[in-house]
Design a protein around this nucleic acid. Structure first.
Length: 653
DNA sequence: GTAGGGTTAG
């Protein structure tokens, strides 16, 4: 007894097509049983399965089998195959990196099918073809295909079909411009709830919450037929979250409850997220507690909420309470640790994640690299780099930027430059990471060169980019360039100059001996100079022997932080250098009298992937004795070298 | 058949 046709139908309709070998067996069987000539769905399902499957050495072009099967069939058969391809990978959720590129390759196969349909004598594209085809085009990177398809829609007069128009709006919102999508919406004679939702959702995705909410209110006021539903409200509430407008958010929440909108989990999740973004952890929590069937998204949103306000213990508790976790909650918790500067915890979490056999993704890698940058953990950072290469993760802008930053902050500037050059798509953040890295490594002229290249390529520098170039100028003593960039910031880029920019500029002027100008800038800057500014002035005074201004700066520093012992020591040193022994002793006495104590500093180092932390006089490390022996040895060598240098400097040798 | 919530870099 052969299996019934329904079994083949189920086999061919599975989310993943059967292997090509099996497909050919099924094909042969259906042919023999005469089932392919019937009016059933079997031929188009088989064609779709061929189109979905991956070619191998023995069957290099399964797509040809698909086209041959479809040739005598009506448009509906083509539509079914295009549909299968256009939503391929939907269930897994579209992800960047692994699999993402493969999905796009499969989606792209809609195009030959559509071309065959256009050429077919038996069938023509219809109103059912375009929603699927446009969905596929929206998932491709190139815009051209979709534009051509939109032209066909007009020529076939299908612009009066609301499904086609909505799909076209969605395509324009995702791959084209929102203004085109909006124009299509305004000029369309057909419009329904989905049309509004598509356009509102498009503006939200593009980060234009003002337009999204404008449309929402217009919909409420104008359209008596299309009432906002839960999808509309997800868009409106998300827009409100982007605006960080708590008052409006509560209003929209009330609107949901007052207008009989279905309270789906998705909507509740969106409301929670809005409350978190608007800064009300309490309201988010109360919504969370009222959700009956929480999804991973609900839990993850709560983790993000706690992490955002620094309650990492609560975030961890929520995380531990979850029953099944995909990569999102792991990433959310890790992001929280990194943002709270708990980098060792972030790395430990990654090890837990590996034990739990959860596949890390691009976001995980970005978090890990950020943690490595803060810790100076080069070995771990390099391990992440190898992992990315081994698993062929796409070197996205964010990932590439994190890599550049990691190498720069962990001391390997050559590798940072190398990676930078390999990143296919760079943005202002990538350039900034490179410029700051070069500056911190003392490669001032390169940093400035990169800055000028960035400008030439039309990338907009921001406050942080200028910190990079200004500190480069500072390290190299490039006063002229520093002045140029400092003024450019205001005149050309209209960027607000922050404390850090002033302190950098003042440091630069001071080191170069322009003490009057440095002091003048400190006096006229729009904010109260901080310890860094006065510290820079003090340092410059000590360097250039300006005792009176140095004293003034020291007094300011004491005023800002009386408990900081460092400044007393430095002041005493300044007097000593200027041969003012009495004043130097006086400061030391004062220090003892005030009972100022040195605050222990902390440093850390990574060895074989383990991060070791040390504080002054710390004996807690297991190898403490050996470490102190080594330290002593180094100190002796330094003293010895120092003596030699002093001797040669004084000309005795 | 078209629309919808959560994690990322300087």
């Amino acid at each position: 007894m052969p299996p019934p046709p329904s079994r083949f139908l189920a086999l061919l309709s599975a989310r993943r097509p059967p292997p090509l070998r099996r497909l050919l067996q099924v094909h042969a069987h259906l042919l023999a049983a005469g089932l392919l000539s019937s009016s059933s769905d079997l031929p188009s399902r088989l064609a779709a399965a061929y189109a979905l499957s991956t070619a191998d050495a023995s069957f290099p072009s399964p797509l040809h089998h698909a086209l041959a099967l479809l040739a005598p069939l009506p448009a509906s058969a083509y539509n079914a195959a295009i549909r299968a391809l256009s939503s391929c990978g939907d269930d897994e959720g579209y992800r960047h990196g692994r699999g993402g590129a493969g999905v796009v390759v499969v989606v792209r196969r809609c195009l030959p099918l559509y071309r065959a349909l256009l050429r077919s004598g038996a069938a023509r594209p219809d109103h059912l073809t375009f929603p699927f085809l446009l969905k596929a085009c929206a998932r491709l990177r190139e815009r051209g295909y979709g534009d051509a398809v939109l032209g066909h829609v007009l020529r076939l007069g299908l612009d009066s079909d609301v499904f086609v128009v909505n799909a076209a709006t969605q395509f324009l919102a995702v791959r084209g411009s929102m203004s085109d999508a909006h124009r299509l919406f305004d000029q369309s004679t057909v419009r329904d709830l989905v049309s509004w939702n598509t356009l509102i959702g498009g503006y939200v995705r593009r980060g234009n919450p003002g337009e999204a909410l404008g449309l929402f209110w217009r919909m409420v006021a104008e359209d008596a037929v299309a009432r906002p539903d839960e999808v509309t409200m997800i868009g409106a509430v998300s827009a409100c979250g982007q605006l960080r407008d708590l008052e409006l958010g509560r209003k929209l929440h009330a609107f949901v409850e007052g207008n009989g909108v279905r309270c789906t989990v998705r909507l509740m999740n969106a409301i929670m997220d809005m409350y978190v973004k608007c800064g009300s952890l309490e309201l988010a929590k109360s919504v969370f507690e009222r959700i009956e069937h929480r999804t991973v998204v609900s839990w993850t949103t709560m983790i993000v909420g706690y992490a955002k306000f620094g309650f990492m213990d609560d975030a961890r508790r929520v995380f531990d309470e979850m029953s099944d976790r995909d990569v999102f909650p792991w990433n959310a918790l890790m992001t929280g640790y990194v943002q709270c500067k708990l980098c060792k915890e972030a790395l430990a979490l990654f090890h837990e994640m590996q034990e739990a056999r959860v596949e890390p993704d691009e976001i995980t890698m970005v978090n890990l690299l950020t943690a490595c940058s803060h810790l100076g953990a080069l070995e771990m950072g390099m391990w992440v780099h190898r992992y990315i290469e081994k698993h062929r993760l796409v070197l996205s802008v964010a990932l590439g930027t994190s890599l550049v930053d990691m190498y720069a902050k962990c001391g390997n500037i050559e590798k940072a430059v190398h990676v930078f050059k390999e990143i296919p798509e760079k943005n202002a953040l990538t350039w900034t990471a490179m410029i700051c890295g070069l500056a911190n490594h003392g490669q001032a002229s390169e940093a400035i060169e990169y800055f000028r290249a960035m400008i030439d390529l039309g990338q907009q520098p921001d406050e942080i980019t200028f910190i990079g170039v200004l500190s480069a100028c500072c390290h190299a003593g490039l006063v002229k360039e520093g002045r140029e960039f400092f003024s450019l910031m205001d005149t050309k880029y209209h960027l607000e100059r922050k404390m850090k920019h002033y302190s950098c500029m003042i440091d630069l002027l001071g080191r170069a001996g322009h003490l009057v100008e440095a002091e003048q800038l400190a006096k006229t800057m729009p904010m109260e100079p901080d310890a860094v500014v006065w510290g820079a002035i003090f340092f410059a005074c000590r360097m250039h022997g300006n005792i009176s201004l140095g004293e003034k700066a020291a007094m300011k520093l004491v005023e800002i932080d009386p408990s900081d012992s460092g400044i007393y020591v430095l002041l005493a040193n300044m007097y000593a250098e200027a041969n003012m022994r009495k004043k130097a002793d006086k400061v030391r006495v004062m220090m003892r009298h005030l009972g100022v104590e040195k605050v222990p500093g902390c440093s850390c180092i990574e060895l074989n992937g383990v991060v070791h932390e040390f504080i002054v006089k710390d004996k807690s490390h297991t190898d403490s004795d050996a470490i102190y022996d080594c330290l002593h040895e180094i100190a002796l060598q330094i003293r010895h070298t120092d003596d030699l240098l002093n001797i040669s400097a004084t000309g005795v040798v």
